[in-house]
Nucleic acid binder design. Structure first.
Length: 308
DNA sequence: TACCAGGTAAAAA
DNA sequence: TTTTTACATGGT
């Protein structure tokens, strides 16, 4: 689908080598990191570089991405192994939304009384995509019904029990690892019996080859949504959540989402929480960037609201 | 201490 | 067919 449009330069063989990746500008990595860490219950300072333990061909490795000049959408990528340079670069491109062009969204939102000041303050902001759709799917399950903070703690236990440690980070568990874990072991991380069976089920299907979540990347929004909803444990909310966060479909919004209903109501409604239909209607003017518009509202509220 | 938090499938009506 | 219910943890 996406070509190898950016030039790769391996500046140096070995440890000090890095790859360069040109992404669609405007892009402000420091701002993205700031917003990303504002969504985490941890109250640490935002990191200065993007660091993530990822898995390539099942092999865990550390990815580090820097943006030397905030005005230039050119990134430097380092991996803990140079064996998979090409894949590492493709993955960084995926995770950091190298293909996303914010300019049409900015043109659409410019002049809007609520969005206009927000896009100015958040110029160059893109979300991050998780490294794999399996991780995204499990994340969606953990976040069903309970608070994000509770889900975060549960996910941490899953990762520390079944994942792979690289330096100070953890690569998310491979599907094969969760597939061979017992329901009881998964439940020990804090998932309900039902949720543990959902996680086990999807991990098992991926492991035995009967499910390939990467097929979603080639589907239209509606087909992808139906595909996800056919999986046990994934309803409408989870499907839309995976579409916007995991696949980066910028027009998708989980309109049943409590957080979305609140934030959209606050900025585009009368101040109070909206219904699912109300959310769709209020975001209408931002089509085909309704999900991105909602993300900007959320990011703005996280960044510019006091954390107690 | 209760109650709610970025839902879902299964049971009951 | 539509409406209720059980469920996990963490913050307030």
């Amino acid at each position: 689908m996406r070509g190898d449009d950016a030039e790769t330069h391996l500046r140096d063989a070995g440890m000090s080598g890095y790859l360069t990746l040109s992404v669609n500008g405007p892009f402000d990595l420091a701002l993205c990191l700031k917003v990303s860490s504002s969504f985490s219950p941890e109250k640490a300072e935002p990191p200065r570089t993007f660091r993530c333990a990822v898995r390539i061909d099942g092999f865990p490795l550390l990815m580090e991405v820097r943006q030397p000049n905030k005005k230039e959408p050119i990134l430097e990528i380092t991996g803990s192994s140079s064996r998979h340079d090409k894949d590492l670069k493709n993955l960084a491109h995926w995770m950091l939304f190298g293909d996303l062009d914010l300019k049409p969204f900015y043109r659409l939102a410019r002049g809007h009384p609520e969005l206009s000041p927000i896009i100015e303050r958040l110029h160059g902001l893109k979300p991050f995509r998780p490294p794999s759709l399996f991780e995204m799917a499990v994340t969606a399950i953990t976040e069903q019904q309970i608070s994000l903070a509770a889900a975060y703690r549960i996910r941490l236990r899953l990762i520390e029990t079944f994942g792979n440690r690289i330096e100070d980070l953890w690569a998310f568990p491979a599907p094969e690892r969760l597939a061979r874990a017992s329901i009881e072991e998964i439940m020990k991380c804090g998932l309900s019996y039902r949720k543990a069976t959902y996680v086990s089920g999807i991990a098992g299907k991926i492991t035995d080859g009967s499910l390939d979540l990467d097929l979603l990347k080639g589907m239209g929004d509606d087909d992808a949504r139906s595909f996800i909803m056919d999986l046990r444990g994934f309803g409408r909310w989870s499907a839309d959540y995976i579409l916007i966060r995991g696949l980066g479909r910028m027009d998708c919004v989980p309109a049943d989402d409590l957080g979305i209903q609140t934030i959209v109501g606050k900025h585009l409604g009368k101040g109070s929480r909206l219904s699912s239909e109300g959310v769709q209607k209020a975001l209408g003017p931002f089509k085909p960037y309704r999900g991105l518009a909602a993300f900007y509202l959320l990011a703005h509220s996280r960044l510019h609201t006091e954390k107690k």
